[in-house]
Design a protein around this nucleic acid. Structure first.
Lengths: 198, 198
DNA sequence: GAGGCTATGATTAGAGT
DNA sequence: GACTCTAATCATAGCCT
C-alpha cells in the first residue's frame, strides 16, 4: 500500500518536473551575487526571515545568547538594520561583550576621554593665566582677530556644523545615519580649535 | 541491475522505517530547551554551523553586510564567541554601526552637549578676560602660532570640510556609504590635526 | 512590496562508528 | 567530540495573485 502511494507520488513528481510548471527549478542556485535585482530582493527578504527564525530556534533550543545584525545594501540608502533580537537594547547587551574586547573601540572611546582631559587641562591653565597675568595684555590678540576673529572662527565652525547637519538631514530623510560620532568629532574639533586661542 | 539495487535500497529503507531504528523520528522537535545535555550540545553545534552557512550565503547572494555573534552557555565559563565573519575586526566594523546608535548614542550626544557647554563657558571667560585685560599678553600665543597659525587652522578647517564633501561625493557616486569609514576618516583627520596643536 | 503555492534541495534529529 | 547514515522536516526559488 505504502509502496503504491509512493509510486504514485513519484509519478506525479515526474509529471510536474517534466512539464516544468511549478516550484523550484531543478538546478541549484549558484552561490554568487544574484544579478536580477527583483529576485535578489525577494531572496533577501525570504532568507533574512529564515535566518532570523533559525537564530530564534537556536536561542530557544540550546539556551544560548545569539545576535544577528543585517544591513541591507539598498541603493543609496542607509537602512535601519534588521536584528535578532529585534529589541536594540538586547542586541546591544549581547554584542557589548564582544565590543568591549575590541581594542579599536576602546581607542575611539578614549578619544572622548582624551578631549575631556584636554578641557580640564586648558581650564586649569586658563585659571592660572587668569590669576597670574591679571593685568597681562593681548597685544596681538586684536591683530589676529582683525584677520580672523574668534567669533569668525566659531562662525566658520558653525558653518561646518551646519554642513554636517545638512548631510544628516539628507540621511534622516532616507533613514538613519549615525550622527553621534560626527557630532563628537565636530565638537571635539571645535574645542581643539578653540584651545588654540587660549 | 540498477533496478535491482534500487529495489534493495527501497526495501532497506522500508525496513528501517518500519523498525524505527534510523533517521529522524517522526515527531517534530518541540521548540523548547533540549533537556538532554548531550543531544543539546550536538544540536547546538549542528545548528550553529547551519546558521553560519546561511549567513554566509545571505552575504554572498544578496551582498549585504551581516554579522552573527553566538555565545555558548558553557557552565560558568567565558567562551570566545563564534561569529560571522570569523574575523573579529570585520564583526566589529559591522556592529559598530549598530553600537554607536544604541546606548552609546546617548553618551556621545551628552558628550556633544558637554563640549558645547565647555566651549560656551570658556568663551564667556575669555570674553571677560578680553574685556578686563584689554592689553593683556599671552606669552605662549605666538609660540603656538609659530607652529600653527590661524591660517593653518583655517586651512585645516577647510580640509575637514573638503573631506566631508569628498565623502558626500563618494556617497552620491556609489549610492552607498559606509559611515564607519566616514567616522574613521574624520576621526583620523581630527587626531592628526589635534596632534599638531599639542 | 506581501502573501500563497509547489517541488526541490537543504537541514538536521537520532542513532551508530 | 567528529564523522557517517537516513528520513522527516524545513527552507526556499520560481511561479502566481
Amino acid at each position: 500500500m505504502l509502496v503504491l502511494v509512493r509510486s504514485l507520488m513519484h509519478f506525479t513528481y515526474f509529471l510536474c518536473m517534466f512539464s516544468q510548471i511549478m516550484g523550484r527549478s531543478n538546478t541549484k542556485l549558484p552561490l554568487e551575487l544574484i544579478k536580477n535585482e527583483k529576485s535578489r530582493n525577494v531572496t533577501f527578504r525570504k532568507r533574512k526571515k529564515g535566518l532570523m527564525k533559525k537564530t530564534y530556534e537556536l536561542n530557544k533550543l540550546c539556551d544560548v545568547q545569539c545576535s544577528v545584525i543585517i544591513y541591507e545594501n539598498k541603493n543609496g540608502q542607509l537602512v535601519r538594520p534588521d536584528t535578532y533580537p529585534e529589541n536594540p537594547e538586547e542586541v546591544k547587551q549581547i554584542i557589548d561583550r564582544f565590543v568591549s574586547k575590541s581594542a579599536k573601540v576602546r581607542k575611539v572611546e578614549n578619544l572622548a576621554d582624551f578631549f575631556g582631559k584636554q578641557i580640564m587641562q586648558v581650564k586649569k591653565e586658563t585659571a592660572k593665566l587668569h590669576q597670574r597675568n591679571n593685568e597681562a595684555r593681548f597685544p596681538s590678540w586684536h591683530d589676529m582677530l582683525d584677520d580672523f576673529s574668534l567669533d569668525q572662527l566659531l562662525a566658520l565652525l558653525k558653518k561646518l556644523e551646519h554642513k554636517i547637519e545638512d548631510v544628516h538631514k539628507h540621511y534622516d530623510k532616507q533613514c538613519v545615519i549615525d550622527d553621534s560620532i560626527l557630532r563628537q568629532t565636530v565638537c571635539a574639533f571645535l574645542f581643539s580649535s578653540f584651545n588654540l586661542f587660549i
